[in-house]
Amino acid sequence: MNNGIHMKNIVKEFGGHRILNGIEIKIEKGEIFGLLGPSGAGKTTLIKILTGQLTQTEGEAELLGTDTRRLTDREYSRIGMMLDNTGLYERLNCYDNLLLFARIYGLSGDKPQEALKMVGLWEAKGQTVQKLSKGMKQRLVLARAMINGPDILFLDEPTSGLDPANARGIHRLIQKQREKGTTVFLTTHNMEEAEKLCDNIALLCEGSIVEYGNPGEICRRYNHQNKICLSLKNGKQILLENDSNGAWQVYNCLKEGLVEAIHSTEPNLETVFMELTGRSFE
């Protein structure tokens, strides 16, 4: 039995319009997987198919070894979800929001406390959701998604609209999931986030996967320039060939004490996406 997520040739059409076009991805247990794409690419649609909220037009997907069209209580109790719309009870406080789900899952009474502490909201446990900042709400949703100790976590744009400090907080929580062996499926249109967190990513553009793999490897694969870039103390930059001739020049610059920094010219995911699709990301 597989404990991950397997997709085979997933096609989804809405009224004859093709939104997903033959998606084929395998996500292993314990992997942090990132689905990247501009808004409207079909990311949320794919999550909905994988979690049984939508049925695909063609193809097959398996979650925890079960066809996603036939998920039962057994699978749902093992997954956690953070959807793009929060779905919190605005008039209830943080604690009561989690207590409801602890009761639904039949968990022990200390789970809400544990979850609130994990996301750093224990101090705010008595505050009504209405009065929380966006970042706090997002953390509360994450706590709710993780309260049942899921084997698979779906996070749909977990940091969209958050400032960098709050986003880093969410990143740390996601990284902690790695230690627990949780499989994480996250979507984002933030390239840096994906490079930082994910074992593997897929670039989704107009319903098709245009690139798949480890983010570092993808960037190296698109390093056509293969050059070394020196930033000099006088503010100039020089590009050198990545060969013995270049090495001599680096040596000379270093000897004369001119060098401020040395970079490679590997592209980042953003430039890879541009190269593949001819369009920018945001």
Binding site: T51, Q53, D73, Y76, S77, M81, L83, N85, T86, G87, L88, Y89, E90, F101, I104, Y105, R144
Partner: peptide
């Protein structure tokens, strides 16, 4: 409207 119902259903209710 507030999507809380969907979250409940996805939590097995």
């Amino acid at each position: 409207e507030k999507n809380t119902l969907r979250v409940l259903f996805l939590s097995n209710v």
